[in-house]
Design a protein around this nucleic acid. Structure first.
Lengths: 122, 122
DNA sequence: TTGCTCCTCACGTCACGTGAGGTGGC
DNA sequence: TTGCTCCTCACGTCACGTGAGGTGGC
């Protein structure tokens, strides 16, 4: 499987994979909806990530959103995903922190007989 | 100050406050962008919350989003706000949980002299 | 040369805002 | 009665997708 960020598809193939007109891809790019790589000759090359993004654009477009809306929605969805991850991370961290405190304090405890011994030798 | 969810504005006033045509408000409603209260006679009554929402709609519209996009964006913004709150709450909770464990374990500790006394009387 | 790419321009369609027109209740 | 509300319908404008037309490099 190719690296998802490896740009391999020319515009006609990308358009076919996304089910849209090649010219439409150029419009999306002009609107800032995606930014495919370019060959040294100046041709566009689309990655697997670009194709996913194109499919998401197609979905939102089918839902009736215009391009400004699609752009904003995809930004918000990304932010949203980041926040979901943050919540998951924080939940795990909270549990780990409590465990750590418990473990640390248990390490500080000493059996009574040993404490007495230490106290006598003081 | 009126309760923010208290519906007091008739459509002409709401339109004026939001800077749009009354007919536009009816379109927004049909599109599911907001849902003002109704009098028993069937007239719309807008609350302060509705006006805020209308202002946000006007902003997004000025940014070039169409109504489908505005709807989706406002839903995502709400979800986003909820997640931000969740993150803030979790951060506070994590600190509180660690403190609680520390405090609880400190309560379980007994001065050595007292421990010895207890041990002798056993 | 063939078939792609690049770009710009034009047209058709649709969404949406504005407004007119006719209705009914405070 | 006056001025609001309700609704539907029609028009103008704009966004966007499609396609044509002409160009240039593998």
């Amino acid at each position: 499987m190719a690296r998802r960020d490896h740009a391999v598809y020319v515009i006609s193939v990308a358009a076919e994979l996304a089910g849209v007109h090649p010219q439409t891809l150029r419009i999306y790019e002009r609107k800032g909806l995606l930014d495919p790589a370019r060959t040294t000759g100046g041709s566009r090359r689309y990655s697997e990530d670009d194709i996913s993004r194109l499919r998401r654009i197609a979905e939102l477009s089918a839902d009736g959103l215009n391009l400004s809306g699609i752009k904003r929605v995809m930004e918000l969805e990304q932010e949203n995903l980041r926040l979901h991850d943050e919540v998951r991370r924080l939940r795990a961290e909270a549990v780990a922190a409590v465990d750590a405190v418990r473990r640390e304090q248990r390490r500080d405890l000493v059996p009574l007989s040993q404490s007495i011994e230490l106290w006598r030798r003081r």
